[in-house]
Amino acid sequence: MNNDKIFKALIWREFIEGKRLLLMIIFPAICIMFVPFISIYSIFNSLTDIEITTNNTINSLKSFYAVNQMFFIALMIIPFISISFFARMFVERNEKTIAVLMAMQIKPQTLWKAKVFMASCFSGAVYIVCCVIYIAGINVGFGVSMNFSIRDALGVFVVSPIVGFTLAVFIALLHWVVKNSELITILAMAISVCGIWSLSSKLQNMVITFPVIAIVLLVSIAVFLICVKIVSKIPNEYTANL
């Protein structure tokens, strides 16, 4: 069978389903965007005169915190949207659609990769929209214009989404290999919203440097590759009989 053709067909199907799914989850995704706004509001209110030195104008300090918050938006939004896609695997397994495709000699790894690919595309698109909403909200709501250094832009628009995708891929792996995938969905959603928010408030003062970005990027890529490798090693029988 032609693997490209199969992958294209799978992507087509995931896209159609994804559009429908997105309509269902777009509202909760927008609600999640309140989290960084609430967080940044409390940070701005807690700024004291001591922090505003001669070198740090109020605007640059606010911009620093606002940009720092953005590192964590990807970690909330991308796994949240992706999990909604991966949770479909549970339905597909119960409906035997995975078994039907495997009977047609389609590799389960191809099904998994197609789902990860489309989940990444959709969550990436939603992330971009959320970034726009956040930047506009900070600008209009708080009157702060955000300044991005190269390091910030690299972190916010490249590394942070990659970390988010890796988290999502790890969750996709769990959905693929663990029987009780509903539990994973609930846990992952709770972690992605509460955990990341709490992390962001603890790390709000941390200056995210290039070495940190590089280490996080390398760890994410390593975890991503390990997940892909594990999926390729899972026997068909295990997948079919979950």
């Binding site: 067909a9 087509w12 199907r13 159609i16 429908r20 339905v91 119960n94 409906e95 659609t97």
Partner: peptide, 22 residues
């Protein structure tokens, strides 16, 4: 199979089109 192996979010036509594409 005893279960139908269909995608509930797709229409009947889309379900068939997917298998035609495969």
């Amino acid at each position: 199979f005893d279960e139908n192996g269909l995608y509930p979010l797709l229409t009947a036509y889309q379900n068939l089109l997917f298998f035609a594409k495969l």
